[in-house]
């Protein structure tokens, strides 16, 4: 089991392209080459989106559950923060290879690692959001006869949404960046074309640019959802 060698696989085509185009031969910045080779990036981009969305979604479910629990049982805050903090500290490349003997090469390994990275950010923000709900609002809810569960979903979570969404935005942008390393785990992503021709300026700029564009696009999408979900924040 060894790393795939994309350069060797794609090398033939790559060097033929170079010969055909003097800009590429000079290792310049060649928009023409990008247009001719867009198909090199479509699959990695799709994998990148898949890894990011899956990991953030999984992380959100876990972190949200933990935060709701910790919101009720305060003693959980310390341990959960410490454990997720250590997970957050571990370098992703190391985690990919530490997971390999257990989960093997592929998307699963990458998703587990990326999910682990989102937990700290999401847990803190969800918890801060829930803690920031005014006591008056809670009292009013209780006065209306809401059960604990109804209070959570109909009062606390809606009021915590701005903080929760802010956490989602940070987690998503961070995950887009980390997913660029997922190719180490055999999960593809934009890191693969990036690494395959790492000395080729056009390639590194375009693949890197795609990562940044993806981060910005997902960030904007979440912001848009937040606006739709919290119309009251714009009223004032």
């Amino acid at each position: 089991m060894s790393m795939p060698v994309p350069l060797a696989q794609s090398g033939g085509g790559f060097f033929r392209d170079r010969a055909a185009d003097s800009c590429v031969a000079d290792n310049g910045i060649c928009p023409g080459w990008i247009l001719d080779n867009l198909d090199r990036y479509t699959t990695p981009l799709a994998q990148h989106v898949f890894l990011t969305v899956t990991s953030v979604a999984a992380g959100f479910v876990i972190a949200f559950a933990l935060a709701v629990l910790a919101h009720r049982r305060r003693w959980l805050v310390g341990p959960v923060t410490n454990v997720t903090g250590i997970l957050y500290t571990l370098p992703s490349v190391a985690v990919f290879f530490l997971l390999l003997p257990i989960t093997g090469r592929g998307s699963l390994t990458a998703i587990i690692a990326l999910t682990a990275y989102t937990l700290l950010i999401l847990f803190r923000n969800v918890l801060a959001g829930l803690d920031g709900v005014p006591e008056d609002a809670r009292d009013a809810g209780r006065g209306m006869g809401l059960s604990d569960r109804a209070l959570l979903w109909r009062v606390e979570v809606p009021l915590a949404l701005p903080a929760i969404m802010a956490g989602l935005r940070i987690a998503t942008t961070t995950t887009v960046g980390l997913a660029a390393l997922a190719f180490f785990a055999g999960a593809g992503g934009l890191g693969e074309p990036l690494e395959a021709q790492k000395a080729f300026k056009t390639n590194v700029l375009f693949a890197g640019g795609l990562c940044v564009a993806l981060a910005v696009a997902l960030d904007a999408a979440i912001l848009l959802v937040q606006r739709r979900l919290t119309p009251w924040t714009r009223a004032a």
Binding site: I170, G177, L181, G191, E195, N203, V204, A215
Partner: peptide, 19 residues
């Protein structure tokens, strides 16, 4: 710092490497 977060470390490394 927002922009910094969006730029993958590996992309930054390879941009320096290529240029």
């Amino acid at each position: 710092s927002n922009v910094g977060r969006a730029v993958p470390s590996i992309a930054l490394l390879f941009v320096f490497f290529a240029f």
